[in-house]
């Protein structure tokens, strides 16, 4: 991969920092977020690597990853991060960025078929909030 000043300093990373209120450069890549993430089994890229991609300005790779969608905001990463980076907040910001650009991840029919009568309202509402644009 070629590192370019224009990419490293791009507006996208600034936007993610602004949305999340976090400094992605505070991350020193210890991997603790990935180490304790209960959903890492579903992710295509480890959470700390998402941070690394942002540090290097790799917008496309960060946005193409499925990882942010699998974050359940359980905050294990955020409370244990030695640098105080709210990793879950950054995942939320990536999701928000994608949603604002029209990305839709909610498959209503599937939910309806599966668990319509049982799923608590809060599950459905938060599903809409996190996965629907």
């Amino acid at each position: 991969m070629e590192l370019l000043r224009e990419e490293i300093q791009n507006e996208f990373v600034k936007k993610i920092e602004e949305l999340s209120g976090q400094n992605v450069y505070a991350c020193y890549q210890c991997g603790k977020c990935s180490a304790g993430c209960p959903l890492v089994g579903q992710m295509d890229i480890l959470p700390h690597t998402i941070l690394r991609l942002l540090q290097m300005g790799q917008k496309k790779e960060a946005l193409d990853s499925e990882t942010p969608w699998f974050c359940a905001t359980c905050l294990q990463c955020s409370v244990k991060c030695p640098k105080g980076v709210d990793v879950a907040g950054i995942m939320d910001a990536l999701r928000e960025f994608l949603r604002r650009n029209g990305v839709e991840k909610m498959e209503l029919q599937k939910i309806a078929d599966r668990m319509w009568k049982k799923i608590p309202q809060q599950g459905l509402v938060s599903g809409f909030r996190k996965f629907s644009s």
Partner: peptide, 26 residues
């Protein structure tokens, strides 16, 4: 290369959850 996030006991063993940032594996 990675910090440890979780330590717990299972069947008399101490289980460690960490990551290897060099190979990108949990």
């Amino acid at each position: 290369r990675g910090r440890v996030s979780k330590v717990f006991e299972d069947d008399g063993k101490i289980v460690i959850w960490s990551v290897d940032t060099l190979s990108g594996r949990k």
